[in-house]
């Protein structure tokens, strides 16, 4: 299956570099467009378009880092910053709007209550997205 447009949600976790490299390698054959998005989740007590400087700077920094990793891996990552109440909905909507055919999610390896933990965002994107979704979970040793 050759994907033409791949959306890579980036949360700033340790798994991000692996996901970006994986996206580059998946997209290389079909020269797919790669879009990295970071969603700033806005609390309900603030307006949706509130100017959140610290979150903005953090997001800019991590997107720039991801673009650099993609360049090192031989790909090009277009980046986008979003603000939303819930990251999952914004990811699904952006994937739909940008006609992406794959969402590549990264999951850091975490355990809670004796089970591998899957975040709410990953779960909702997995269940709600219209396009194909691939979830990459980090190795347990990492």
């Amino acid at each position: 299956m050759a994907y033409k447009r791949i959306l890579v949600p980036l949360a700033g976790s340790a798994v991000d570099p692996d996901v970006v490299r994986l996206a580059v390698s998946i997209g290389k054959a079909a020269k797919a467009q790669l879009l990295g998005v970071h969603v700033i989740e806005v609390r309900w007590n603030l307006p949706l378009d509130a100017i959140l400087d610290a979150e903005l700077d953090h997001g800019e920094g991590l997107l720039a880092g991801a673009a650099r990793i993609a360049a090192q891996a031989g790909g090009e990552l277009e980046t986008e910053l979003l603000q939303a109440r819930e990251a999952a909905a914004a990811i699904i909507d952006t994937a739909h709007e940008r006609a992406c055919d794959l969402i590549l999610l990264g999951m850091p390896y975490r355990r809670r209550l004796g089970r591998t933990y899957v975040s709410r965002t990953v779960e909702e994107v997995y269940l709600g997205a219209h396009c194909a979704v691939l979830a990459y979970r980090q190795e347990a040793s990492q």
Partner: peptide
């Protein structure tokens, strides 16, 4: 900042459009 309508009723999100020529480092 462009406010976009989401897929579900009442859903909205904001797309922050940055110039390609610059990367923000702080205010």
């Amino acid at each position: 900042r462009h406010v976009e309508r989401g897929g579900r009723p009442g859903d909205r999100y904001v797309r922050i459009v940055r110039p390609r020529e610059f990367r923000r480092r702080g205010p």
